[in-house]
Nucleic acid binder design. Structure first.
Length: 462
RNA sequence: GUGUCCAUAGUGUAAUGGUCCGCACGCGACUCUGUGAAAGUCGCAGUACCGGUUCAAAUCCGGUUGGACACCCCA
């Protein structure tokens, strides 16, 4: 209230006088023109250090799983001939039609930024004659993918995927093993997930089913939403994905693909389910699940966070399936294969959502001790000691840029380290160091040469 | 590609068109020049960009860029 009165009391003129001399802002810096700053390209994002506490465990888990299940790392280039993905993923799919970064290089070659990695791995498999490796060939990857899509939360134009592919074995155990890996990856991350599962059969089986589906839908055309009317021509399998309420009754009565599978596909699928039951991996059968890439055959699956969080709740964390015909389609010899990928950004988002919902925090890095130093000569011995401590397997925090002991102990305190090691001029001369118990505040002076052993003993590491 | 909303220090926020933008966290320093609580003091750092309206713009208008949401689709 008093504020308002104040402004009302003053007539406009008072401010007119004051406003004028505002133009020449900082007189000192006017010599240099302000440099313009840069924005990120749409859909691109920096992976900042603070993300690392989420990503690192994911990467470690990916590494462990690969190790245990004997997958070898493969890194293919992020750029490939555009035709590779057009042929494998298929014309008419959204990924190819509207989400690929395609451009010409200086020689006029049509190249693209990879929208996914499976096709590239099939290419590498063929190129390098990997069927000469012990069968099956098991490969994993971790790297950036690119899709020219409209960004949303958990959706970027450059995003990271981790993926596992098994080539050369058509058996259902492969499908189950891959689903198990995907499931374990999410479990390691602490994210409860559900696996949605379906079989889309062979291309022939699918073709027959498509005909039946289109016939069925055509009869009910009048009851459909506009999107579905378009899908009827463009991509009939997508009819099953429609979320429009108008279409639900029609959808519920629609023929199911599993009824159109041949004996072999059917028993393959049954076997996969059996394996999963044995593994107690929870799954949901979803007969409406088809995938947006043409190369899939038989088993397809997607992974969803099972918590009903808001952020990215309806978007899949990952997905995959069998692609028995891809390698042959790409010019290799007939090679059944299967694989899956998981989006790292989406995993991080899911972990965040889960933590928030449960009041959890990501674990902070734990250090065994903090090394504090005072003065130039101390800094020199500190550096040497640091190296000794590293080799003895201790995790040490330090900051050689800090000068005051006080601020270094403050850091030690906020890091919650059990011990601080202090080295000043005096200690350098005596070749000693002060070990401070951060909890009790008690200190003892020890011989520098024995530090690593003393600390290890104190920390129970011996 | 369609529709809707949004943009203030690194982060979270405040400012009837009128005091060259306030606060908190953060980071740094000091009070205490060799010892981590708290507190206090000081410092760092901002109106996304370009243009317009106005005596006066963080505030109104247009554009650009970026973000969020819902479609589409997917990771």
């Amino acid at each position: 209230m008093p504020k308002k009165q104040k402004t009302k009391k003053h007539p406009l003129k008072k401010f007119i006088r004051r406003a004028k001399p505002r133009a020449p802002r900082p007189a000192a810096e006017s010599a240099e023109k302000p440099k313009r700053t840069f924005n990120l390209l749409r859909g691109m994002h920096d992976v900042l250090p603070r993300e690392e506490k989420y990503r690192k465990p994911l990467y470690q888990s990916a590494l462990e799983l690969a190790d245990f299940f004997q997958f070898s790392r493969i890194e293919t280039p992020i750029m490939e001939e555009a035709g590779l993905f057009i042929r494998s993923i298929g014309r008419g799919t959204d990924i190819v039609d509207k989400e690929m970064y395609v451009f010409e290089d200086r020689d006029g070659n049509k190249i693209c930024l990879r929208p996914e990695n499976t096709a590239a791995i099939a290419r590498a498999y063929i190129m390098h004659g990997m069927w000469n490796m012990p069968l099956p060939t098991k490969l994993w990857y971790w790297g950036p993918m690119f899709r020219y899509d409209r960004p949303q939360a958990g959706r970027y134009r450059q995003f990271y995927q981790v993926g596992y592919e098994t080539l050369g074995d058509g058996g259902p155990a492969v499908d189950a093993e891959l689903i198990l890996i995907a499931y374990n990856f999410c479990q390691d991350a602490g994210v409860p997930v559900e696996i949605h599962l379906n079989s889309i059969g062979t291309p022939e089986e699918r073709k027959n089913y498509k005909t039946a589906l289109v016939d069925y839908y055509r009869a009910k055309r009048g009851y459909l939403c506009d999107d579905c009317k378009a899908r009827l021509h463009k991509n009939p399998l997508r009819l099953l994905d429609c979320k429009n309420e108008k279409c639900q009754p029609v959808k519920d009565e629609a023929p199911q693909i599993t009824d159109w599978l041949g004996e072999e596909s059917k028993s393959h699928f049954m076997k996969v389910l059996e394996y999963l039951d044995e593994l107690t991996v929870p799954y949901t059968l979803r007969h409406t699940l088809v995938r947006g890439l043409d190369y899939y055959t038989r088993t397809v699956f997607e992974i969803y966070p099972s918590l009903t969080g808001e952020a990215g709740a309806q978007s899949a964390l990952g997905g995959g399936g069998r692609y028995d015909l891809l390698v042959e389609e790409m010019g290799g010899k007939p090679t059944p294969a299967a694989g899956f990928s998981i989006g790292i950004e989406r995993m991080v988002a899911a972990i965040r959502a889960f933590n928030e919902a449960n009041g959890l925090r990501p674990p902070a890095p734990k250090y065994d001790l903090y090394l504090a130093q005072l003065g130039d000569s101390a800094r020199q011995s500190a550096l040497r000691l640091l190296n000794v401590l590293r080799k003895s397997g201790l995790k040490v925090s330090f900051n050689l840029s800090k000068n005051s002991l006080k601020s270094q102990l403050e850091s030690a305190n906020s890091l919650q380290v059990p011990y601080a090691l202090i080295i000043g001029q005096k200690e350098v001369q005596d070749n000693t160091a002060v070990i401070r118990d951060m909890e009790s505040g008690t200190q003892e002076i020890v011989d520098q040469r024995k530090i690593d052993n003393i600390l290890k003993k104190k920390l129970g590491k011996m």
